[in-house]
């Protein structure tokens, strides 16, 4: 199951025609204590690079963008009760939402884990 990364610090796992999206461990660390995550509604159509979710830390609200175009099929209900999951498990249990993959070519411009690590090291 390949995982890709964006320069806005989202990760995306691809499994067939479905994708799972979250924010990276680097991102959660930068944001600090997360107190609320506003997730997209199931059925919402997201555009690549468009607003998908908002993550609220104690200090500030930050936008999360959709790495690809697609329709939201599921949102992570666990984050409603336990937004701190994003801090403790950003790249596993703290996933944000799932969506359909409508155009696999959109993945071409994303980074793999090695490229993302190099990207973060240079920040």
């Amino acid at each position: 199951m390949p995982r890709y990364f964006t320069e806005e610090h989202e990760w995306i796992d691809i499994e067939g025609d479905s994708a799972t999206v979250g924010i990276t461990d680097y991102a959660q660390e930068q944001l600090g204590d997360i107190v609320f995550v506003e997730l997209p509604d199931v059925g919402a159509m997201l555009d690549k690079g468009g607003d998908a979710a908002v993550v609220e830390s104690v200090k500030a609200a930050s936008d999360v963008y959709s790495p690809i175009t697609g329709e939201v099929t599921e949102a992570n209900g666990s984050l409603e009760d336990e937004p701190a999951l994003v801090n403790s498990s950003a790249e596993e249990e703290g996933w944000f939402f799932r969506l359909t993959v409508s155009d696999k070519e959109e993945l071409d411009g994303l980074m793999d884990d090695k490229a993302y690590k190099a990207f973060v090291d240079n920040l």
Binding site: V35, F36, E56, A61
Partner: peptide, 9 residues
């Protein structure tokens, strides 16, 4: 005092 968990900033 705001209901829920979403902050108003």
């Amino acid at each position: 005092l705001i209901d829920g968990r979403m902050p108003a900033r």
